[in-house]
Design a protein around this nucleic acid. Structure first.
Lengths: 216, 216
DNA sequence: ACAATTAGTTAGGTAATCCGAAACATTTAT
DNA sequence: ATAAATGTTTCGGATTACCTAACTAATTGT
């Protein structure tokens, strides 16, 4: 609603992302993700709470309606930036995350609309995540992490976690990218790897990595 | 050479621009251009002087070699951003300056190179100013302001001052943009207007405005 | 249960960047 | 030449956002 100090968007974006994985988001995880000290984060949480952007304080935080809405607008700019970088400037999909982190804070609503239009209204970022509309609304689809598939299940990859370029490059080299068909041959017990099959080749995929791949 | 606090680039860019017009650049003009108070600027000048980016202090400042070089790298990013906005995102040339002011601080050397390549190595920004190369070097051409032309002289418009969208729109509507041919019919004495002719139409142009148009 | 570990907050401090008020310096005009 | 106007810097103060060290609270292992 009102004036943001510049960092707030960055915090909200991080909280949003961590929230996908862990609910609520703890101070220390946030500090780790933002590469800041816990006291810095703790202090900012008080500010966010004061502005009504997070709903509690102390035992981890969750975004409020408003916090969520702001976060999704930032994420919209991030994902549009990524598409600009890949589709127009020729970047590889494993190179765009960090650049987009800077760009997302330099993009006006006007520019947002123009990027969207110039790109032909893309639905997702290069990693398969949906691009929120201009009001921050995401059409929610019920996706499963690859790690939850049972043996002999077949699925289509929808998104791949973007923040680790090394992992992206690796998965990309195996052909595990959005829209690829993947089938699970075998699931090792006790959190062991999945044996998966992508376009004819068989690979062992750690459960940790598999949980970062969403399928439909 | 070393770590910049974030504002430094912005100051250097402003100093560079004002320097084109007035040598050396005074505290108050800088404050005006940056929309800051004179004390703020005065303080920063001490810092710039300490870092060897300006060559004196007190009676206005001039950029040193190094200050100039940094400024031109910022200007390169600014002008490449402007071209990205007009050529790829479909902005009008009168709309891009302010957007580019934000973008220029979010562009990595890598992205700089990719924009340049994607745009086909443009030589100038949409307003006709040259884009410095990646080392900040500008091929210098000896241009005259339109205001210095004598009656019955003919010239080609090379650049039009970018920072006043209203003026840009006005000049644009008259067809006074880079590469247009302009001839001077009459020059009123005592700093009065020039009567100029552009593609068949005759206009009276204030000396002040004419000085913001560079011709060859 | 309680010691050890882990997580979170408080306290105190630093650095960058801005401001207004007032002091100083310079220019300009009479 | 000097008073008014203009320009610049000094001073004290505010804000934001970060840090380390120390303290407190919560969890966990045995």
């Amino acid at each position: 609603m009102e004036a943001d100090t510049p960092r707030i968007e960055e915090y909200l974006e991080s909280i949003y992302k961590l929230q996908q994985v862990q609910h609520p988001v703890t101070t220390s995880r946030l500090a780790e993700h933002l590469k800041l000290s816990p006291p810095s984060v703790s202090e900012m949480m008080k500010k966010l709470y004061g502005k009504g952007l997070v709903n509690q304080i102390g035992k981890g935080v969750c975004l409020t309606e408003e916090g969520n809405s702001i976060a999704k607008k930032v994420i919209r700019r991030h994902r549009l930036s990524e598409r600009l970088l890949t589709d127009i400037l020729g970047y590889g999909w494993d190179e765009v995350h960090d650049e987009a982190c800077k760009l997302e804070h330099a993009i006006s609503p006007e520019m947002e609309a123009r990027i969207e239009e110039s790109l032909g209204n893309p639905e997702t970022c290069p990693h398969g995540y949906p691009i929120p509309d201009k009001d921050g609304v995401i059409k929610k689809e019920n996706l499963r992490p690859l790690s939850e598939l049972k043996a002999s299940e077949k699925a289509t990859i929808v998104s791949v976690f973007e923040e680790d370029p090394k992992m992206l490059q690796y998965l990309s080299s195996l052909g595990m990218l959005p829209r690829a068909t993947i089938s699970v041959e075998e699931v090792a017990p006790f959190g062991g790897p999945l044996i998966v099959c992508v376009s004819g080749s068989r690979y062992a995929l750690g459960r940790e990595v598999a949980s970062k791949i969403k399928v439909r």
